[in-house]
Write a protein that binds this DNA or RNA. Structure first.
Lengths: 245, 245
DNA sequence: CAACTGTATGCTGTAGGCGGTCTACGAGAA
DNA sequence: TTCTCGTAGACCGCCTACAGCATACAGTTG
């Protein structure tokens, strides 16, 4: 059925292909990782994926490189690709970096806030609250990402926004269970944050964002202790080199 | 002659190739960009580079993707690769992000400083000062990178270290002229910074690093106003799509 | 003279194939 | 029984080839 999915996109291959195949493959593989069909530590054989998605190995290779660049898979030259298996320590550090970037973004967003921008943020808050009320966790997580992205954009620093977005995407991997637990609190904090940005209060915006992300972080760590991410079954066909360097 | 360079690496292709060709290509291309042989905005035709380096298009493509991931080239699907042309604004934002990451690194390095780590930093400072005394700008810049990398590593946060290193590498592109101007001052600040880290004085270390990187930033901006980076001559064979999106 | 259209060329994106290395596994020796 | 070695299979990295789109240019028309 995955084959079908991509094949349908390729159903009109001779007419026009505005989007390179590698990006479709990228998203398809990312989806498989996020949904857990491809488990952390698992070896990803190019031929296998190529057959699964109904394309040749070339787009698979390129998509794997893109995934590697964003930290989703590890490339071991001569040994192929493996789904990245984040340790608790690494997740913790990632969340710490996220706090740093998002806090700075919030500060700058408050400094450069515009009525138009604030209105967009408020709209996202409303949608997020609605999603929480409806117990739609997936939507809540998605809108959460949108809101944070909007704030980083509002900061006016594109480099910062891009970096924060990248880090946030990785965080999203293990974000869902946390959202389930503290969805309502999280969105209340979001609302306060937007108020601070609207008031152009840099320090308060930064402080709220710092507490907000730190809160998420500790929640995540508790969660993680309770339910470690399931790893790939041992019989991974190809072993990683002993020195993962 | 470039062909020779890579060909020599491939001179023993049948025995063992511990390092994939794409990484050699990556470094070769990066060198060409840094030295200005490939100018900002220039279109990079795969076949051309393949011929130049004496390899096929495949490793070239993969190297270009790696370069794209680190912000050295822009990939426009269907239109090929272009050497990234940083605007003054973007460079400014990049340097601001660098300040943020490096400041946090310095703070954490002070918090987690070890005698062993401090000793490494001092050794680098000594080498840096020696390079400045000898008017060896290139060495000074290189050792500067090493020092900053060592500090980020000492922070204990690998994610932060990786991000900071990536940002710093990009900064290095336009760093050299600055180093020429304020080499001595820069290394004096480094020494103070290491002292603060050795004393485990988080706040002081952070403050020194902040000032240090801000200083570099303003120096760079002055420099840039005076000598804009030379761009590719207009007759770039292939135009970028109008909406660079 | 300007704008448009048809044609030619170059380049990208993808497929398929080859050589070499790594892993796994079974047979033989200590 | 355990360790070593040889063999077979699988997979990766790279090369070559092809199809389709984008661009540039020349000819044509208003």
């Amino acid at each position: 059925m995955l084959r079908t999915e991509l094949a349908s996109q390729g159903a009109a291959p001779k007419i026009a292909r505005p989007v390179p195949l590698r990006e479709s493959v990228f998203e398809a593989l990312l989806e498989l990782i996020l949904t857990g069909h491809l488990k952390p530590g698992q070896h990803l054989a190019e031929s296998e994926l190529a057959g699964l998605l109904g394309v040749s190995r070339q787009p698979i290779r390129e998509a794997l490189q893109l995934l590697s660049g964003e930290g989703w898979v590890d490339l071991h030259p001569g040994h192929g690709a493996f789904v990245h298996a984040p340790t608790v320590e690494e997740a913790d550090q990632l969340l710490a970096v996220r706090t740093l970037l998002e806090t700075e973004s919030a500060k700058l967003a408050a400094r450069h806030s515009t009525p138009d921008g604030v209105q967009r943020l408020r709209a996202l808050c409303a949608r997020g609250l609605a999603a929480v009320e409806a117990d739609d966790v997936d939507a809540s997580v998605a809108i959460n990402s949108e809101l944070h992205a909007a704030i980083t954009e509002l900061s006016g620093n594109k480099v910062l926004a891009e970096l924060a977005s990248q880090v946030s995407r990785r965080v999203r991997w293990y974000h869902t269970p946390v959202a389930r637990k503290r969805g309502r609190d999280s969105w209340r904090e979001h609302t306060e944050l937007v108020d601070a940005i609207a008031a152009a209060d840099e320090d308060r915006a930064a402080e709220i964002m710092r507490k907000h992300t730190e809160h998420t972080r500790s929640s995540y760590l508790e969660q993680r202790e309770a339910e470690p991410i399931e790893a790939a079954p041992e019989p991974t066909r190809r072993r990683r080199p002993r020195s993962p360097k």
